[in-house]
């Protein structure tokens, strides 16, 4: 008997069971993501738009267009892709751990913790208008630790953690608002866009370190994916199959918190991506395995598209967080109302 949807390769004592549909879907989304990044580069203010921008991207001669594309647009698109991938994977992990499609890092208070962390670095500095990316993961870890502490441990389904996280995130959110309200209006306005999720003025300075973080965390998540598949059966069956639930839940949750923190460090608490990406990825790649890679790619695709859309209409850009919310609200309804397929 073969496992479902698997291409089995064997050589001597070694054997691999590669997901067929999952791999095809991942490749497909990666192609779409590349196309979305090119489209994102081609959208913006000024004259470097459309074909002119695409030409500059692939080595056109016009120095002004090249500068616009390579200094601003492409770094921003890549920063969006990195933030989206981190959110998508973080959501995939938390949804799998809680066995609930609504369980995202946002609900566990992690995003709000990261937001406060980054906000502190902005307001603590006299010159900075955008926060330091590294404060994101620190804030996220602090919030997660606080949530787990108050909840009194992880609990078997993570339900308690979610409830405590929900309460705490409302509180932290209020703190953010309070801090903003006490700032001069111009400072507050500059930071406000970021607290609802924005990629404005983001570039390689954040995309590179956070991309390196992803380069470590994504393989770590992939290494745990076989155990994540088994954790979906609940603690008793997972234990029976030789997977220590507490140990692997902590492992996966730590990765999820770090990813969510990194994402917030890049683009602020962009809404809905962490919830929508894994659900979409599972619809595309099937339910046989936890869609680790597909969730990351889908998250990247969603954020790049939302950011592009936010810059496509008119001179005033709409923050990516607002657009993600606009698109995510109906999506949430769809997830809640559509029956299990």
């Amino acid at each position: 008997m073969r496992p479902p949807d698997a291409l089995v390769l064997r050589a001597g004592r070694l054997s691999l069971a590669l997901p067929k549909r999952g791999t095809l879907v991942a490749i497909g989304i990666a192609v779409l993501l590349a196309a979305a990044i090119v489209a994102s580069v081609a959208v913006g203010n000024g004259r470097t738009v459309g074909w002119r921008a695409v030409e500059a991207l692939f080595g056109g001669e016009n120095p002004f267009a090249r500068r616009t594309v390579h200094t601003y647009r492409l770094p921003r698109a890549l920063a969006g892709a990195v933030a989206g991938a981190a959110l998508g994977l973080a959501g995939c992990l938390t949804q799998t751990l809680a066995r609930n499609r609504l369980a995202t890092p946002d609900l566990a208070g992690v995003n709000d913790g990261a937001t406060v962390g980054v906000l502190v670095t902005v307001l603590g500095s006299t010159t900075a208008t955008i926060g330091a990316w590294w404060a994101g993961p620190l804030g996220a870890i602090a919030a997660a630790a606080l949530v787990v502490l108050i909840a009194g441990g992880m609990g078997p389904t993570g339900y308690r953690v979610l409830v405590v996280g929900l309460a705490l995130s409302v509180t932290i959110d209020a703190v953010t608002e309070l801090v903003l309200a006490r700032q001069p209006i111009d400072v507050a306005r500059g930071v406000w866009g970021w607290t609802i999720g924005s990629l404005n003025a983001r570039g390689y300075d954040v995309a590179v370190p956070v991309g390196l973080g992803l380069a470590v965390l994504v393989p770590l998540a992939l290494l745990a994916s076989r155990r994540l598949n088994v954790l979906r059966y609940g603690d008793e069956t997972a234990t029976g199959l030789g997977v220590h639930p507490g140990r692997w839940r902590l492992y996966a949750l730590t990765i999820a918190v770090l990813l969510a923190g990194l994402a917030v460090g890049v683009g602020g608490p962009i809404a809905f991506t962490a919830m929508a990406a894994p659900v979409l990825a599972a619809r595309l790649a099937g339910n046989i395995r936890v869609p680790v890679l597909a969730s990351a790619l889908t998250g990247a695709l969603l954020v790049v598209c939302a950011d592009t859309l936010g810059r496509a209409f008119g001179p005033v850009e709409v923050p990516v967080g607002v657009l993600a919310g606009l698109l995510g609200g109906p999506f949430l309804l769809w997830v809640l109302l559509s029956g299990k397929d």
Partner: peptide, 30 residues
């Protein structure tokens, strides 16, 4: 267990394949 829960939409083939988990490893997948 008394009331085991399975992942959403799993097939019998997928369920039985997971029974092999303790015998598997990173390079011994099937």
């Amino acid at each position: 267990p008394q009331q085991p829960t399975a992942p959403e939409a799993i097939t019998v083939r997928g369920l039985v394949a997971h029974g092999r988990h303790p015998h598997q490893g990173l390079f011994r997948q099937w």
